[in-house]
Write a protein that binds this DNA or RNA. Sequence first.
DNA 1: ATGCACGTGCAACGGTATTGCATCTGTATG
DNA 2: CATACAGATGCAATACCGTTGCACGTGCAT
Lengths: 176, 176
Amino acid sequence: MHAKPGRRTTTAGVPSTDAARERIRSAGLRCTPARLAVMERLAASHGPRTHAELAAELTAGAIHAGSGYDKATIYRNLVELTEAGLVTRVELGDHVWRFELKGVAADGTGQAHHPHFVCTECGGVSCLDGMEVAITPRPRAVAKGRRPAGAKAEPGRNRIGSVSEVLLKGRCEDCT
Amino acid sequence: MHAKPGRRTTTAGVPSTDAARERIRSAGLRCTPARLAVMERLAASHGPRTHAELAAELTAGAIHAGSGYDKATIYRNLVELTEAGLVTRVELGDHVWRFELKGVAADGTGQAHHPHFVCTECGGVSCLDGMEVAITPRPRAVAKGRRPAGAKAEPGRNRIGSVSEVLLKGRCEDCT
DNA sequence: ATGCACGTGCAACGGTATTGCATCTGTATG
DNA sequence: CATACAGATGCAATACCGTTGCACGTGCAT
């Protein structure tokens, strides 16, 4: 009882738990321990996580006692959070959906869609959050003149209507 | 149609069947009717086909008499052809793998790194042959000094070694 | 404290990918 | 041209992941 359910990092600032709680609430969803756990797990991850991974971590045998959420619950939560707009669901080429916390930049600037890099060797996935991908029509030197607007292709070019996801495949440094 | 399973042989030019046959052979695989059928089916399609589609077309009830290949055989052939480098396997976002004839690398060397664009709506794939993708560090990090959660891959892990493929997902103009 | 609606756990379903094994066939060899 | 072997095929069974139905538990407003 003396351990308040949820607020484990009680600093004067804004604990991630409380932030998550608030976001869940404001999304019109109830704030349940399972949802908090999912949110925190996603927040603690540096890249997109698969449902299987999250389920494995949050089901019974997990390190943290008090877990033990059902796989279906986690799945439903992920879907609901996705529909609520708090989480994005991406597909990187293997047959697994990965979920990722949607942009939470403190200032509110949406880190909309950042590119992902997946290693074809080890299957590792990196979030190229600090990278920018520019698509230019002609193989001309593009080094300078950084083009903001993220990974947006110029419309009217080729048959691209709109780009929703950028995916790079290759080998990570470890596998080279 | 009139293409008999036999060798329409090299009377004039090179029938696609023979071309496929040669490619299969040169890939170190046996040339079997099932493989030829798969290759021809892929060649006749202008977009990526799912294994389910191909299986449905090539199994017993198919248009072509004499077909009736097993679903597992088709699957294995697709995988083998993929490993042999004759076919590429892509994932569009639904949980189905799609197979597509790879570009004809005449000299056998790897084809240029041209990005692909795949429409998540219609499944169409465009080869962005005249486009170039540049990956540049974002001018300004999300936050200064500190490493924000999820903003960067773990150091020493999952960093990009080499990029072998660039894949853009989104909607094509027709589906917008 | 109470009640309702929403969330959860359990288990089962469905669909696709994947594999084992016995049989058959393409291909090389004599 | 016949033969033998490695590889390919068919059949069926399996594994896996995502998804859903239903009864019960729980958050949250009253």
